[in-house]
Design a binder for these strands. Structure first.
Length: 231
DNA sequence: CGGATTTGACCGGCGC
DNA sequence: GCGCCGGTCAAATCCG
């Protein structure tokens, strides 16, 4: 998932994030004392050494991102509202649209998502799941999510036991081999399941991220962003 | 006209 | 060995 999501879902825009009333993210150890938006970056395959704005000291390390991600999974987070441009996959021929609110209903644990995508046998065969794959489920009428990156569609397949086709995308940035698969949930077509694989070796085009570090935990958080063309 | 998308073909892994 | 399945390729087509 992506940065448009990660960044908008920032400390500065914490009021744009809605959690179940019985959740206490501010006290959860995974959140590092602050509302963690970093798991979105993990899903998106944040650049390992991104270039941020001048005020940005860096961004969450993969492990930290996974921590946050697992935090939500463990807590059973079921409703997170984030500003994102759902329904408008950005391509080189399409300018970015203004953000719209979208609801991430469920984050799919990496292993199960991978199993879901490739089959339990394949996962068992590999022994373990690569840590650069992650998936999530979003209730959305449209399938494409503008995550800030440019993607090139390279395949479409119908999958067994599902009436919905699976679409394959590859990051269109030269030298970046991040891929993502998008398909509607076979059990509930109102959900879109997106799975990312790999780590971007570049920053989201036209986007500058500002990170902040929590003094107590040492974790980094996306504190803000600027996306050219949106303002 | 160049770049993105579509879509059938092709390939490799796996189970029987 | 054969068929099934998921993933990828690439030629044809579309579109701005």
């Amino acid at each position: 998932m992506h940065m448009a999501l990660a960044s908008c879902y920032s400390l500065a825009a914490a009021d744009a994030v809605r959690f179940p009333a019985d959740m206490a993210f501010h006290r959860h150890p995974c959140s590092g004392g602050g509302l963690s938006s970093t798991f979105f970056g993990a899903a998106a395959g944040f650049p390992q050494q991104p270039t941020f704005g001048s005020a940005a000291p860096g961004l969450a390390a993969p492990q930290q991102l996974r921590d946050a991600f697992e935090c939500l999974s463990d807590e059973g987070a079921s409703s997170v509202v984030v500003p994102g441009t759902f329904g408008s996959m950005r391509t080189t021929s399409q300018p970015p649209r203004p953000p719209r609110m979208a609801v991430i209903e469920q984050v799919v644990p990496d292993a199960s998502a991978y199993a879901h995508a490739r089959g339990v046998a394949a996962v068992a065969r590999e022994g373990s799941v690569r840590d650069d794959r992650i998936a999530f489920r979003v209730r959305s009428e449209e399938e494409v999510i503008d995550d800030g990156y440019k993607w090139r569609k390279y395949g479409k397949k119908s999958v067994k036991n599902s009436p919905n086709p699976r679409n394959y995308y590859r990051c269109s940035t030269e030298g970046c081999n991040v891929k993502k698969r998008i398909e509607r949930d076979r059990d509930d077509p109102s959900y879109v399941v997106t799975m990312y694989e790999g780590v971007h070796n570049h920053v989201s085009p036209g986007t500058i991220y500002y990170a902040t570090q929590d003094a107590a935990s040492g974790r980094f958080f996306v504190a803000g962003m600027h996306q050219f063309g949106l303002d």
